[in-house]
Design a protein around this nucleic acid. Structure first.
Lengths: 207, 207, 207, 207
DNA sequence: CATGAATGAGGGTTCATTCAT
DNA sequence: GATGAATGAACCCTCATTCAT
C-alpha cells in the first residue's frame, strides 16, 4: 500500500525498466489506466519524471510494456502447475483464480480489466486481445493433453472448452470488480466450473 | 449516429437532463469514461459548459445519471420480450445480446465496461454493481417463472442459473472488447448458452 | 520595459485578444519568437495561462495573430503619410524607417525579423511573405502614382523600384540587428536611398 | 545531404569538433537555432549527448563555433574567385550568391539569418556583426583594388559600395526566406546589382 | 436558464546539463 | 575521450469548476 518503494538510485537500464513496469501495474490496479500518470509513476519508482523517458519513449509505451509483463505473469501461473492429471490441473488453476479474486490480490485481474477499458485509440485493447488469444490457445492445448491422457472425453471441442473456462474466469472477475463478491465467495463460480468440467470428463472421472 | 450535435435551445429542465445523459452515453462508448470531458458534453449537447452545472452538481453526478439511464435501457430490453415460454424467452434475450455485440452497437456493452473500469474512488463501480444485482434478480425471477410454468426443472437453483447466464453475456462482452470476435461470430458463445439451457430444461424441452 | 501592464481583469473577448497580441509583439522583440512562451504571455497580459486558450486555439495561432497585427501597423505607417508629392512621400517613409531603426523602437523591425527566422514548420515565414508581398504592391502603386503625377519618370519599372526600396529598408534592418549601427547613423543608408530616388526622379526633380 | 548520421568512432579532438560544427550548421538551416538541441547534435554526430561536453563547454559555445565556421566558409567563397578584373569578380560573386539563394542550398544564408534572429541574450548577433563587418571590409578592399586597377571610378566611396552590395545580398536573402522567390528568379535582384555596378564602373566598363 | 471569461491544478513531454564509472 | 543514468526546470496544453452578468 502506498507508493511501492523509494527505489535505490542508479539502477541499470533493464533493472529500472522492470521496476517501472512493476510500479505501473500496481498503479493500474489502484487507480485505473487513466490514473497512471507520469507523476505517479515517477514517484513510485523514486526517480524524476524525465528519467522515465530515458527508458520509454512515451507513456503509451510504458503501458504497453506493462500489458506485456502482465501476461508474462499469467503465463507463469498457467505453466507453473505441474499436476499431471489434466482435470485436476484445470481444477487447480480455477481454484487459484478464485483465490486471487476473493483475496483481493490485485496483481492480475484488476489491471487486466483496466487495460480492457482503456481508450480505444491507445491500441491497448488490441494488444490485450492478442495476448489473451495466446492464453486461450494454451488452455486448448491443455485440454488436448487431457484427451490424450484419457482424462477428458475425446469428442470434446478443446477450443470451445478453453473459451468456456474463460467464461468462468471472466464472470469471477467482473462480479468482483462490481463488488458482487458473493458469486465467488458463496461457491457459485466453483459450481459453474464444476458443471463445465463434469461435462468434459472421461467416464472414469465423472463424479 | 454520433452525438446529438446541435441541440434545440430552451429545453425544459428534465428534457435537457435526458439529452445530456444521452450525449454522455454516446461519449462513453466512443472515448471511455475518462474521455467524457465537460467540454465534449457541452459541445455534444449544444450548450455552454457552465450550463451543464445548472442541471448537475458535478461531472461525477452526470456520470452517475448515465449509469442509471444505461440500466433503464437494459431493463427495457429484458422486460420487452413478451414470449410466454421462458426457455424461448431466455434464448431470445441471449440472441439479442449476441446480436448487440456482433453488430457493434455500442449503446450497452461498451459503456457498461467503461463504467466498470472507472477509477475506484468515483464509486461508479459500486453503483454499477447494485444495478447489476437487480438485473440478476430479475433473471432469477424469470427462471422461477419457468419452473412454475413447467419449462424448467423444478430443482434448479434459479440464482445460480442467473449468474451463469451472465457468465455467458460477460464472456461475449469481454471477448468483443478485446477484439476476439470469433467467440460470438463463430457460434461458440451460442453453444455455451445452449449447454446451460439444456441443463435446466424440463424433459419435454430437452433437445 | 518589463512586462507591459498588469491588465485590469474581465475584459471582453476582442479587447483581451488585442491586448494579448500587443504583449506578444513586445515579447517577440525582446526575446525572439522562441522566447514567446505561454508563461510570459500570460504574465504580460495579467491572466492565467489557461485563459489564453479561451481566445486562441494554440500558441501558433497567437503568433499568427501577432504577424497580422504587425502588418496592420506597417500599413498604417505607409498610408498615414499624406504628403501629396510622391518623391517626398517616399523620402519621408524612408526617413521614418531610418528613424525607427536608429531610435531602437523595436515595435516593427525586430519582430518582423524574428518572425522571419521562425522555425520552418510554423508557417510563420510564409504568412509573413504573403503580407510583405502586399506591402511591396502598395509601394509599387505609390510609384505608379508618382508617374501619373509627373514626379517619377514614366519609363521606370514600378515593381523593380518597390523591391529596391525594400532592399534599402532590409539593409537598415539587418545591419541594425547585427549591431552595425553605422550604416544608418552615418548616413550610408540615406545615400543608398537617395541614389535610388535620383535614378527614378523626373527631370525637374533631379538634384 | 542531411546530417552526417553515423560518425566513425574515436576521432581526435579537433576532428570531432569540426564534425560537430558541421552537424550544427546543417541543423541550424533545417530547424533554426532553437531547433538545434543537444539531442539532435549528438544523434547527428553519432556520439552521446554527454560526449559533446568534452569538446564544448555549453550549447552556446557550440553555436558560437558554428558562427565562426560559417564565416570561414563565406570568406572562402569571396577569396576563391581569382578573376583579375574586379568588376567581373563582383559580378561573379553576385551571381554565385543569387545561385545559392535560388538553388535552395541552405549552407550559408539560412543559418546566417537564423543566427541573426537568435535571442538577444545569447550574444550570437553581436558575434555575427563583428564577423560581418570584416566581410564588408573585405568587399571595400576589393573595390579599392578595382579603383587601383582602373576598372572602378576613383571617386567612389568603397565603404559605401560595400554596404550597398550587401543591401543586394540581404534583399535576396530576406525575400528568399519569406518565400518571395520572384525577386531573384525573375532577375530583379540582378538588375539591382547591375545598377549599382554601372554607377561605379570606370567609363571603359560602362555598359 | 444560460453565458462568457476566468481560474488553478495537473496533464505528458523535452530541455541543457552533470557525474560516477 | 566517452558513456549511461539521472536531474530540475521549463515547455504547451487541457481539465473541472466558478461566478458576475
Amino acid at each position: 500500500m502506498g507508493a511501492t518503494r523509494n527505489a535505490a538510485k542508479r539502477l541499470t537500464g533493464s533493472e529500472r525498466r522492470r521496476q517501472i513496469v512493476e510500479v505501473i501495474l500496481d498503479l493500474v490496479s489502484r487507480h485505473g489506466v487513466q490514473g497512471v500518470t507520469i507523476a505517479r509513476i515517477a514517484a513510485g519508482a523514486g526517480v524524476t519524471q524525465a528519467a522515465l523517458y530515458a527508458h520509454f519513449a512515451s507513456r503509451e509505451e510504458m503501458l504497453r510494456a506493462a500489458v506485456e509483463a502482465l501476461y508474462e505473469r499469467v503465463a507463469e501461473v498457467i505453466t507453473s502447475s505441474d499436476e499431471p492429471d489434466v482435470m485436476l490441473r484445470l481444477r487447480n488453476i480455477g481454484g487459484f483464480h478464485s483465490g486471487l479474486v476473493s483475496s483481493g490480490t490485485n496483481a492480475f485481474i484488476h489491471p487486466l480489466f483496466e487495460f480492457l477499458a482503456a481508450p480505444p485509440e491507445t491500441g491497448l485493447r488490441e494488444a490485450l486481445g492478442a495476448k489473451q488469444r495466446q492464453v486461450i490457445e494454451t488452455f486448448a492445448a491443455i485440454v488436448e493433453e487431457g484427451k490424450a491422457q484419457g482424462s477428458i472425453k475425446v469428442d470434446v471441442d478443446a477450443q470451445q472448452v478453453a473459451w468456456e473456462l474463460h467464461g468462468v474466469y471472466w464472470a469471477e472477475d467482473v462480479s468482483h470488480l462490481m463488488g458482487l463478491t458473493e458469486f465467488v465467495t458463496s461457491g457459485r463460480s466453483a459450481i459453474m466450473l464444476e458443471r463445465l468440467l463434469a461435462s468434459i470428463a472421461a467416464d472414469r472421472h465423472s463424479r
